[in-house]
């Protein structure tokens, strides 16, 4: 009996082992796939687009270190849905997406946007002779296409209230512009956003002028397509100032003046200070947002504004400041560049 059992255990092991080992279909081939399962399958034909995507933050949605820290390595399940989504077409345009269990390292990949429920590929033109035989789906250009993820923090809701919505200027006009401006050359797939400093610079203005009471500072949501910053609570912008004597060596540390950010749910004592694109939301004033005008007036008191003063706006991809080892209290930060990007600076004589 023991021998029989031994044979059975061995047979089970052999069977299960063979069952679990990969079939030949899993080995790479140059043939056209019958199933679209990975962005890497698109690379051969769409080299340029693939390279743009691979360099994009969509591609890094799962592996970006800031995301991993803020999601506790995605043990916070709420983040997985949009950072490794199943195809948008699977759940329908404008609906929220569902999370993937596999290939999460590819983040928001080609398949997330282009795979149709019947296994075919959505594109901008019908091309039955191409290996992936794309079918034209105009939904790819709709704002609602992005909404499943990007309206989780009301970006699309904000946009719908603006003149851009009235004029039909959607997400892709700024975030997926035409390649070289040529309508026949397709659109950039880098999906530039908050990580693109030039885009951030074009979206916001900083002004500072001296008056009797000190220095009047203004930050303006210039683009007014959605709030600044937008899309998630991890983003922030900070206004700092410091004395600016002619000799750069003599410049001291920065002093924090104002933070522009939407707080997390548990930060009950902090109001939202986003620079909204419109004074009111769809249902009246923006929730928990008391200073909603697209232009934010600030002031540096006269006693702190003696001599030339440099005022600067910094953009942050994480809500906190780190000096490599510790997390600093924002109000005590004297060198914002340790963990922020300089957007604009103004020197007031």
């Amino acid at each position: 009996m023991k021998k029989l059992l031994g044979i059975l255990v061995l047979a089970t092991a052999v069977w299960l082992g063979l069952e679990l080992s990969p079939s030949s279909g899993e080995r790479a081939t140059s043939a056209t796939p019958t199933q679209w399962t990975s962005s890497s399958q698109c690379q051969a034909c769409h080299e340029e687009v693939y390279a743009e995507w691979a360099d994009s933050w969509h591609a890094k949605a799962w592996i970006d270190e800031d995301v991993r820290v803020q999601s506790a390595d995605f043990s916070n399940k709420i983040c997985i849905d949009c950072h490794a989504p199943r195809p948008v077409f699977e759940t329908g345009i404008g609906n929220r997406v569902l999370p993937r269990s596999s290939r999460r390292a590819e983040g928001v990949d080609c398949i997330s946007c282009h795979l149709l429920p019947d296994g075919t590929i959505a594109g901008t033109i019908d091309n039955p002779s191409a290996p992936c035989r794309p079918v034209a789906r105009r939904e790819l250009q709709r704002v609602d296409f992005c909404a499943g993820c990007h309206d989780q923090h009301k970006t699309v809701t904000q946009w719908k209230l603006t003149d851009h919505a009235t004029n039909g200027t959607g997400c892709i006009e700024c975030h997926m512009p035409l390649r070289e401006g040529d309508p026949n050359a397709g659109r950039y797939h880098q999906m530039a956003g908050g990580h693109d400093l030039e885009l951030v610079r074009s979206a916001v203005a900083l002004r500072a002028t001296r008056d009797e009471a000190g220095i009047a500072v203004e930050v303006e949501n210039l683009m007014r397509a959605h709030s600044f910053p937008t899309d998630e609570r991890s983003r922030a912008a900070d206004v700092f100032y410091r004395s600016a004597p002619e000799d750069p060596e003599q410049r001291g540390g920065w002093t924090h003046l104002h933070r522009i950010r939407d707080p997390y749910r548990h930060e009950v004592d902090q109001p939202s200070t986003l620079l909204q694109a419109t004074p009111e939301g769809p249902d009246g004033p923006w929730e928990n947002n008391t200073e909603v005008h697209p232009v934010r007036p600030l002031r540096i008191a006269a006693e702190a504004a003696a001599g030339p003063i440099e005022v600067a706006l910094f953009y942050k991809l994480a809500p906190y400041y780190r000096d490599g080892e510790t997390v600093l209290v924002t109000e005590e930060v004297t060198d914002p560049l340790i963990d922020a990007q300089l957007v604009h600076r103004v020197v007031v004589p």
Binding site: L20, A28, A105
Partner: peptide
Amino acid sequence: PVRTLFESLDAPAAPQD
């Protein structure tokens, strides 16, 4: 079985996830 699976996926083109 899991060990067998792991060892069988050693080709670079095998699904790394």
